[in-house]
């Protein structure tokens, strides 16, 4: 798997002194096409209303919450998913058009399309045959 600077997981600064409630880190696939990047993130339980995708200072933030959780009358017997929140962040390089990111959510999978700016797309060079 190739590590790419432009979509490296965001490096944290100094360790935080006050421990925050830790969010779950969703597994992602990142796929590159000529037009841009496709990012898929598994976030089961998240709805369009409980999802937040934003870019701030070249950092793409994915945040979501499991919308439906059992009520108080339900006693946990066995738990593999702890917590309700998902969070993950990526650094975006200048070759991506942050204004035109498209997001869709289906069956708990977030799909983002992050287009490359026009000048960064590979150009097809037509080869003319000279008769």
């Amino acid at each position: 798997m190739a590590e790419r600077q432009e979509l490296a997981p965001r490096q944290e600064g100094r360790p935080e002194r006050t421990p925050r409630r830790r969010a779950m880190s969703p597994p992602v696939d990142v796929y590159e096409t000529d037009e841009g990047l496709i990012l898929l993130a598994d976030m089961p339980g998240v709805t369009p209303e409980s999802l937040e995708v934003k870019v701030e200072d070249n950092v793409l933030h994915l945040r979501g919450e499991i919308a439906e959780a059992p009520g108080e009358e339900v006693r946990p017997e066995y738990v593999e998913v702890r917590g309700r929140e998902y969070y993950r962040a990526f650094t975006l390089g200048p070759e991506f058009d942050q204004e035109k990111i498209e997001a869709t959510l289906k069956h708990g999978v977030l799909r983002l399309f992050i287009p490359k700016v026009e000048s960064e797309r590979p150009r097809r060079i037509e080869i003319k045959t000279v008769q």
């Binding site: 597994p27 898929l40 598994d42 976030m43 089961p44 339980g45 059992p70 009520g71 009358e73 339900v74 006693r75 946990p76 017997e77 066995y78 738990v79 593999e80 998913v81 289906k106 069956h107 708990g108 999978v109």
Partner: peptide, 25 residues
């Protein structure tokens, strides 16, 4: 290795609830 799907089980007075986290199937 990944665990897929992850599972939570809860129990109330009347029923047992099984949450199977299976995104994208």
């Amino acid at each position: 290795e990944e665990i897929y799907p992850r599972i939570n089980v809860g129990e109330s007075a009347e029923e047992v609830l099984v949450y199977i986290f299976a995104p994208g199937v």
